[in-house]
Design a protein around this nucleic acid. Structure first.
Length: 395
DNA sequence: TCTGGGGTCCTAGGACCC
DNA sequence: TCTGGGGTCCTAGGACCC
């Protein structure tokens, strides 16, 4: 039995934040500029570098000061998140002309199942049309990868940037994928690739060689290894679930402080502000959370997360504030902090909550126990030597 | 070099239950 | 009295991605 081959597009908006900046301020076109960081303090890191900046070796996550050292006339464009949201939704709306099976991979990338659309039109023609259409209608350049699985499509869209269209057939894997450096494999990051390189695994092809399996298993778990092999060989998922990221699993807000702070009061005030904002997002989206926590990062960049779970999901501000306050009091020892954050985990939609018939609701039990204790002590006070029987407290 | 902010997923140990 | 194995939840940490 032959499995039907799907046609998956991965569409990646090129240098998205920089493209948005150019749309808003066309004079930036062909200029050496970056988005992110702080122009006056020259602190922070770069979110996105324009292509002319990239040619000079300036890249995202780079410290802004280092970028200035490379190019003193560097233009700094501040982050404007609402602008990106606007063009992101224009992007996804545009794609719906071709298919409704779309996964929003992130703000600037989409996986689209084009199997249906490709019956009437050649995938390459569809890709060209999308690329030109996005540029003409919205000023957004993109690269497109075409393959039979999500992973291969993602690898393909990365192969030619900017404005590339790359088809990666299963029969192309050995020729096109195997020669790539292992660090270019989606999912292998800056911790893992040096370790792989150190044992002689420097390409994707080397990773797949059976005789290297034992060596690689000293670096990663068997399930991880297996999953990478399946991805690379084109045997991983070809199914797009448009709802996959529709409901967030966690919500968080954090901020790097203007200077390292060690005033417990001042720090907790900032935590409270972060909490208010995070809680506002929670309720606006009609979500509830079960686990809440704080993040503290000290001057040496050591980061500590501390969290606590409730018996039931909740969106009650006072209950959450109480928990956060306890976590802070228990865990903050007075050291100077550079960052604080608040997070909600195990987030679900309020409407999906089952009515809680749990008889062992701890908080409810505690409340009752306290009441019973009060009743008993009041009885004992009134009748110190008698056995209270059939007595009711009137309150 | 001196390091943002928002996420997802995985691992691993301990508690607890059956 | 001593014993096995499996499942789920909680907490912490870490890798990775954009």
């Amino acid at each position: 039995m032959k499995k039907n081959v799907k046609i998956i597009f991965h569409i990646d908006l090129n240098a998205f934040f920089a493209s948005c900046a150019i749309i808003k301020e066309p004079y930036l076109k062909d200029k050496v500029f970056v988005v992110g960081g702080n122009a006056t303090t020259r602190r922070g890191v770069i979110s996105t570098a324009s292509y002319p900046a990239r040619k000079l070796g300036i890249h995202s996550a780079m410290n802004i000061n280092d970028a200035f050292r490379i190019y003193p006339k560097l233009i700094i464009v501040p982050i404007q998140f609402s602008l990106y949201q606007k063009y992101s939704s224009l992007f996804f709306t545009y794609l719906k002309r071709y298919s409704n099976i779309i996964l929003e991979g992130s703000i600037d990338e989409a996986y689209v199942d084009m199997t249906e659309a490709a019956i009437k039109k050649h995938p390459l023609d569809i890709a060209k049309e999308i690329q030109e259409g996005l540029m003409k209608e919205h000023g957004l350049p993109c690269s497109i990868g075409i393959a039979s699985t999500l992973f291969l499509a993602k690898m393909a869209s990365d192969m030619q940037k900017p404005l590339g269209i790359t088809v990666l057939r299963k029969s192309d894997i050995v020729d096109k994928l195997f020669p790539l450096p292992i660090r270019d494999c989606y999912g292998i990051g800056k911790k893992t690739y040096p370790r792989l390189e150190s044992i002689g695994i420097d390409t994707i092809g080397a990773f797949t060689k059976p005789e290297n399996k034992e060596k690689i298993l000293s670096i990663m778990s068997e399930p991880s290894y297996h999953s990478y092999i399946e991805h690379i060989m084109g045997r991983s998922s070809d199914t797009i679930d448009p709802k996959k990221y529709a409901i967030p699993k966690s919500i968080s807000n954090e901020t790097t402080l203007n200077y390292n702070m060690d005033s417990s009061e001042a720090i907790f005030k900032i935590i409270t502000e972060l909490l208010e904002y995070t809680h506002e997002r929670l309720t606006k989206e009609e979500l509830v959370t079960k686990t809440v926590g704080i993040r503290l990062r000290d001057a040496s960049f050591e980061t500590t997360n501390r969290s606590v779970s409730f018996i039931n999901h909740t969106d009650d501000y006072e209950q959450i504030l109480d928990a956060i306050e306890n976590l802070f009091e228990e865990n903050y020892k007075g050291e100077p902090l550079r960052l604080v954050g608040v997070f909600f985990n195990s987030v679900v939609q309020k409407k999906d909550l089952k009515i809680d018939y749990n008889l062992f609701n701890y908080q409810e039990l505690t409340r009752r126990e306290e009441n019973i204790y009060k009743v008993i002590s009041s009885i004992n006070e009134k009748y110190p030597k008698s056995i209270a029987k059939g007595t009711k407290k009137t309150s």
